[in-house]
């Protein structure tokens, strides 16, 4: 078994993507003996009603005849009407987790002051609590493109360690995949949290291991079990992240290939 926890289908409005279908991802997976891919539909980051993208992915899955086993995550926008009903329906329809897109859906992972109701709300936490009730994990991608080259029409924000801390510290039970984010980049509070919160998982898209002490430093912050393989396909070539887990002597390559599956088994 070899699990990639960070893949997407669909379109990115600022750049044309190749292999952004289930068949396309399947081809990439076959080249590297990847057996499972956690997948969401990028279109849901940009539709007002994110659930329409989940329905698109469901349709695509029905017609898919490839070899790779896809683990679909539903994109949930807790600032949109009837989001909770949609989220429940998607789990009933076969989705295995939720994906949050705070930057593109315009809410924070931290509690917010919503002036229309004069009281703080924590919308992201409501999704986490629903995930706990339904027994599914959550995925949060910090960024899809390096900020320097993003389109002037894109957001220049990334999900930060402070925001992640504000959410993850309020619900310690739901497994969370934090992708495209180095465990070393979250700040002191976040680092202290993920040492305790063993069901927080990371991928190798955001750190270098050659002529670097990053691998050792990362294992001072998280356990080997918390490092999964994730490629951020189809945005990225897969080989750089494969090199990082295969060549760093500190990492257990074979274990990292399957750690994504352990996250589901821990539910």
């Amino acid at each position: 078994m070899f699990v990639d926890i960070s893949t997407y289908v669909g379109h990115w409005p600022f750049r044309n993507l190749k292999y952004n279908t289930l068949e396309g991802l399947d081809k990439l997976a076959q080249e590297h003996d990847i057996t499972h891919m956690v997948v969401s539909n990028l279109n849901g980051f940009f539709y007002k009603d994110a659930n329409a993208a989940n329905l698109e992915l469901l349709e695509e899955l029905k017609n898919y005849k490839g070899k790779t086993e896809f683990i679909p995550f539903a994109i949930v926008n807790p600032s949109y009407v009837e989001w909770e009903k949609d989220a429940r329906d998607m789990v009933a329809a076969g989705f295995k987790g939720f994906e949050l897109a705070p930057i593109y859906h315009g809410y924070s992972l931290a509690p917010e002051m919503l002036f229309d109701e004069y009281m703080p709300k924590h919308r992201a936490l409501q999704v986490m609590n629903l995930a706990e009730e339904l027994g599914v994990p959550v995925r949060i991608c910090s960024s899809f493109e390096n900020f320097r080259g993003r389109s002037p029409r894109d957001s220049y924000d990334n999900v930060t360690g402070d925001q992640l801390y504000a959410l993850l510290s309020k619900n310690m039970n739901v497994p969370v995949f934090v992708t495209s984010f180095s465990p070393l980049a979250g700040g002191e509070k976040f680092t202290a949290l993920i040492k305790e919160r063993k069901n927080t998982y990371f991928d190798p898209t955001s750190f270098e291991v050659f002529n670097s002490k990053a691998a050792e430093a990362i294992l001072n912050v998280i356990d080997q079990d918390q490092l999964c393989y994730g490629s951020l396909s189809p945005f990225n070539y897969m080989e750089p992240t494969l090199l990082r887990i295969a060549y760093a002597p500190e990492f257990d390559y074979e274990a990292i290939k399957t750690n994504g599956a352990k996250a589901f088994k821990s539910l």
Binding site: E208, F210, Y237, E239, P240, T241, L242, R244
Partner: peptide, 14 residues
């Protein structure tokens, strides 16, 4: 440019 895995990997993957 010091990003060893990226420099090697992107050519392998192309």
């Amino acid at each position: 440019d010091g990003a060893w895995s990226a420099g090697v990997g992107k050519l392998l993957g192309a």
